[in-house]
Nucleic acid binder design. Structure first.
Lengths: 139, 139
DNA sequence: ATTTATGCAAAATCTTTGCATCAAC
DNA sequence: GTTGATGCAAAGATTTTGCATAAAT
């Protein structure tokens, strides 16, 4: 089942309507080859209104279907979420994100929260650097 | 030595001038009781121009004298940096940040980068939840 | 038929920039 | 006296909102 179908089904289940613009946004997200800004998504969807794209992105992010990654310069990019909780390696060169999960890392984070009497409800980890292929040949 | 003095000295060393508006911004940052947005900082400095506040914040952030913390809602808050590399516990209730360092956590991150052939150049870790005092009595 | 979603354009944010003036060195 | 910093207001960039219309259920 594709992301578009899956997300669409999920939306319908919760009571949202399956509309043509919504599906267009889902397809655009699915076919994105790299993490995108809302602006870029907007450009790839000339037929869909600004507000609709923003509203859909917000919706998908709230439903955890889309992950939002803050870059070092303060800008925000989105990427289709691969599912569960994960972290990102963000390449400064090509801009690609690589997802990873690390239970030990999460445990360490949980431990820090505990040590500070902090009730942990969420966390974000982003690594910035240069990915293997960029380091190798650059592109 | 206070933050204001320290930051001022640091700026002068690098060749920036010590000006009244700049010092006013430094003092406002030093006396902030909680992480602030640029807008809040602006409001606390009615005599200083918008542009100057933005320029100063950017400058201090680049010099690592100020840390920039992205909140879950996408907004950005700043806090005087306690110095070296660290991470944050962000309380969703009161908005206070607690800094912590964790070498083991950093090592784990380095290890993940290595495992992915990624040249690590920086990373950010934010924990979100409820701090001890908010969980206890609220405030 | 209802009710939700859309599209537009306007408004609200948030941040940067150009430029004349001013202050620091 | 040079050069860098400031303040203003204007321009950009980014996101949200109001509202009439259109589409989904």
């Amino acid at each position: 089942m594709s992301f578009t179908e899956l997300a669409n089904a999920r939306l319908e289940t919760i009571g949202f309507r399956s509309t043509a613009p919504r599906r267009a946004v889902l397809r655009a997200i699915e076919s994105a080859s790299a993490p995108f800004t809302v602006e870029e998504l907007l450009e790839s969807l000339p037929g869909v209104g600004r507000a609709t794209v923003f509203r859909t992105v917000k919706l998908l992010h709230e439903l955890d279907l889309l992950c939002r990654v803050p870059l070092e310069d303060g800008s925000i990019r989105y990427q289709l979420s691969e599912g569960e909780h994960h972290h990102h390696l963000v390449c400064r060169r090509c801009g690609q994100f690589t997802e990873f999960t690390d239970l030990e890392l999460d445990a360490r984070i949980q431990e820090q929260a505990r040590a500070h009497g902090f009730t942990l409800e969420g966390h974000a980890v982003e690594l910035y650097g240069v990915c293997r292929s960029c380091a190798a040949g650059g592109l």
